[in-house]
């Protein structure tokens, strides 16, 4: 464990909590892409299957349970509790355009052709594109509420810190995980555009619609 990865995990947790609290406190999920949240819940589900087969550390186990619980809680709030505020008109990104290539790629490019490895690879590739429905929704509605932008900022920060973590681990342990790195860099690039808007436009974002 290094400071970059710890800060990255904390930033990831903060992002998830920001979104969950926003929905819970405002009792509304307007402007939030339920599709992205379902994809994130799917990412955690397919990645953390080893929760019951491999014990790495208390931290690892606790964080996996927390991420799973919070992501399912978010999906529950969007599609059940506050479903009447769900903006299905604008949350229309075709997730099959993400799932099909990701499934295909995870069968082609993986470390071992075993169910657990393929599901893990699927979750890595899926995570890199899971934010697309949310970014699409923001461009469609032409705006993002300030709290949603904080959510995206901390999500992007988590990815950037993971890249720093990989550089650090390569230098100190000679460790690198090619699939995770390639996918993580692609994911971070998607946030760069948003980061630019976030920094130049301040909190409220108006995308050129």
């Amino acid at each position: 464990m290094n400071i970059f990865r710890l800060a990255g995990d904390v930033s990831h947790l903060v992002a998830i909590l920001i979104l969950l609290m926003k929905i819970w406190r405002s009792k509304s999920c307007a402007g939030i892409s339920g599709r992205s949240q379902v994809l994130f819940a799917l990412v955690f589900t397919t990645r953390y299957l080893d929760l019951f087969t491999v014990y790495i550390s208390a931290y690892n186990t606790v964080m996996k349970v927390v991420f799973l619980a919070l992501s399912y809680a978010t999906v529950y709030l969007i599609y059940m509790r506050f479903r009447n505020s769900y903006d299905s008109e604008n949350d229309t990104f075709r997730v099959e355009f993400l799932l099909i290539p990701v499934i295909g790629l995870s069968f082609l490019e993986n470390y071992a052709f075993t169910p657990l490895e393929i599901l893990w690879t699927f979750s890595i590739f899926l995570e890199s594109v899971a934010i697309m429905p949310q970014l699409f929704m923001i461009t469609k509605t032409g705006e993002a509420e300030s709290i949603t932008t904080h959510y995206l900022f901390f999500l992007g920060l988590y990815r950037a810190l993971y890249i720093a973590n990989w550089v650090w681990r390569y230098h100190t342990e000679g460790f690198y995980d090619q699939i995770a790195i390639v996918s993580g860099v692609v994911q971070t690039i998607f946030y760069c555009d948003f980061f630019y808007l976030y920094v130049t436009r301040g909190e409220e974002i108006r995308t050129p619609s």
Binding site: I56, N60, M63, K64, Y111, A112, N165
Partner: peptide, 10 residues
């Protein structure tokens, strides 16, 4: 397929 890496990252 190189060996499956240790999955210690979240």
């Amino acid at each position: 397929d190189d060996e499956s890496k240790p999955k210690d990252e979240l």
